[in-house]
Design a binder for these strands. Structure first.
Lengths: 244, 244
DNA sequence: GTCTATACCCCGATAGAC
DNA sequence: GTCTATCGGGGTATAGAC
């Protein structure tokens, strides 16, 4: 029963809006169920059919929302990056409000711990974005902005520390000067090259710590993993010149 | 045509030996083909049927060699750990022979570079042992000895450095003391707790660097990756007290 | 947008003849 | 130890009716 145009200034839009809303709700439901299956079985096992089955739909119906399995994967990847980025930013913001003297070093450790906490809560989503690549899947460029959020946050923390006189870092290894300058120019032209390269290294090393814990490499080896991580993250902060 | 017993001292063994040899050859062929497919498609896509197809066998015949897909995976995992361990040990041994003054720091960097080199040459095998866990697979205890080889090598290097008066490390973060002592007792009772925990952290961090490169996280970010890694590995050596 | 039906693949694992 | 045949699942993706 299509009603007559009312006083709303954009009645066609109202209809479109309703459709768009319904579409968005179904899209969200699909992603939620896909995330559930991801958490249960891992990315390689994610299948459109299983998602459809669980939602009481038929598999072919999903193709109206995601043209292929890879598009669904891409959506999950972007969501995961955003979720991780939001968690890290929120932890940092909360710490800056309540924390006692939010020094750059403490902010750094706080953000690292937020990354770890998110990863432990969402192991399969973490594996999706920082684990082995999904075979046959190639991430499109559209994932880049979401993927950059945590990195930008870490850069900002280091920048704050080095704005008011940074801490000297060990000298650059012979031969790495050009790469260090390139990285600085790309990521943070205001930072010294040795800081830029240390930042990238610390970022990768942090994920080494997180992924080893999430992927079980610390089983029967590290017991008090929270304390271990706090200690190691403090070491990373030292490595980018945030301490002493 | 079974020949009469010859002068060989253990003729029955000769027959058994031939059977065993044939069996070993087929087993090796299966693993080789499986490794080939692993390199092409990743661990999640590895299938007994495809291996059998490629070898001109029928899938059911493989079950005489590997009772299940997981057993084949386990064999590949042990082989990968052993291959990596052998590469690291060989690089260290070669460096100690030819290298100019094999200091612990230089040995450390050499071993790290060997790990990186092996990983870049065998990305899927690296993913198999240090990437996201294969869904539904649980590694049996039989993988432990092979998995420990690189770790033992690194412990040995650090031990050598700290035998003749070690370098002081930053103090332990409050709350991590007990875990540090536990790790030291487990891994190297002769090393100070802060060295033991730094060693485990550096090990995980090294794999963060390697896996980021192997898994493509450095695409469009780090260009001169060999130089970058050498610099970062030197930083790791510093972190376990091997420098200055 | 959802449905049925279908084409055309894949897999692990086992039974039983040879 | 290898074979055929089979059980009993799984999957992506499309065509065409409604």
């Amino acid at each position: 029963m299509s009603t007559s145009r009312t006083s709303r200034s954009t009645p066609p839009r109202a209809t479109q809006g309703a459709r768009a809303r319904a579409r968005q709700e179904v899209t969200a439901a699909i992603k939620d169920e896909a995330r559930r299956q991801l958490a249960a079985d891992g990315a390689a096992e994610l299948s459109l059919r299983a998602v459809a089955r669980e939602l009481g739909m038929v598999s072919s119906a999903l193709y109206r929302y995601f043209p292929s399995r890879d598009d669904l994967l891409t959506a999950l990847i972007v969501d995961a990056y955003d979720s991780l980025g939001a968690a890290a930013e929120a932890a940092d913001a909360a710490f800056r409000e309540v924390g006692e003297e939010p020094t750059p070093a403490r902010r750094w450790v706080t953000v690292c711990q937020a990354v770890r906490g998110w990863a432990l809560e969402h192991p399969q989503e973490y594996a999706l974005i920082y684990g082995s690549p999904v075979p046959g899947y190639h991430a499109p460029m559209s994932t880049v902005p979401a993927a950059a959020r945590v990195g930008l946050l870490l850069i900002g923390i280091v920048r704050e520390a080095h704005e008011d006189g940074g801490v000297a870092l060990p000298p650059l290894t012979p031969g790495v000067g050009a790469e260090a300058r390139r990285l600085a120019a790309d990521l943070a032209p205001d930072l010294p090259p040795e800081v830029a390269i240390a930042l990238v290294a610390a970022w990768a090393q942090m994920h080494g710590l997180v992924s080893f814990e999430v992927f079980g490499q610390f089983n029967r080896l590290v017991e008090d993993r929270a304390a271990f991580f706090a200690h190691a993250a403090t070491g990373l902060a030292r490595g980018v010149g945030l301490m002493r």
